[in-house]
Amino acid sequence: MQIFVKTLTGKTITLEVEPSDTIENVKAKIQDKEGIPPDQQRLIFAGKQLEDGRTLSDYNIQKESTLHLVLR
């Protein structure tokens, strides 16, 4: 499924993921596309910060959901 990741600069990254993918996994995909190390990434969905060990389905993230990427 496709999800979108919006950065603070207003750029939107499109990722191909599975509901069973972990947040860690998603961060690795963002690193592949954008070169941002996962340890600098914070992903936010519905106002919650997403934890590395959880999966997209844990957070009920469905196709075409938009996550927000904050760098630390």
Results as ranks from 00 to 15, higher is better:
M1E: 03
Q2N: 11
F4S: 05
F4H: 12
F4A: 04
K6H: 09
K6W: 06
K6L: 07
T7G: 15
T7D: 09
T7L: 05
T7E: 08
T7Q: 08
T7W: 12
G10T: 14
G10R: 04
K11Y: 13
K11A: 06
T12K: 05
T12F: 04
I13A: 03
I13W: 14
I13S: 05
I13H: 11
T14P: 13
T14V: 14
L15C: 02
L15H: 01
E18F: 13
P19I: 06
S20M: 09
S20A: 14
D21H: 10
D21E: 06
T22D: 11
T22K: 07
I23F: 03
I23C: 02
E24M: 15
E24V: 14
N25I: 15
N25D: 15
V26R: 00
V26T: 13
K27G: 01
K27I: 03
K27L: 05
A28M: 15
I30Q: 00
I30K: 00
D32P: 03
G35D: 07
I36M: 06
I36P: 12
P37F: 13
P37A: 14
P37H: 07
P38H: 15
P38R: 15
P38V: 15
D39Q: 07
D39T: 14
D39M: 08
Q40N: 13
Q40K: 04
Q40T: 07
Q41I: 04
Q41G: 07
L43H: 01
L43N: 00
F45T: 03
A46C: 02
G47Q: 06
G47L: 09
K48C: 02
K48Y: 15
Q49E: 15
Q49R: 06
L50I: 13
E51P: 04
D52T: 05
D52E: 05
D52W: 04
G53C: 03
L56S: 01
L56R: 00
L56W: 01
L56H: 00
S57A: 07
D58I: 06
D58G: 05
D58E: 10
Y59I: 03
Y59S: 04
N60R: 13
I61P: 01
I61Y: 01
I61T: 02
I61M: 04
K63V: 04
K63I: 13
E64Y: 10
T66D: 04
L67E: 01
L67F: 05
H68M: 04
H68V: 04
L69F: 03
L69G: 01
V70F: 09
V70G: 08
L71M: 12
R72G: 13
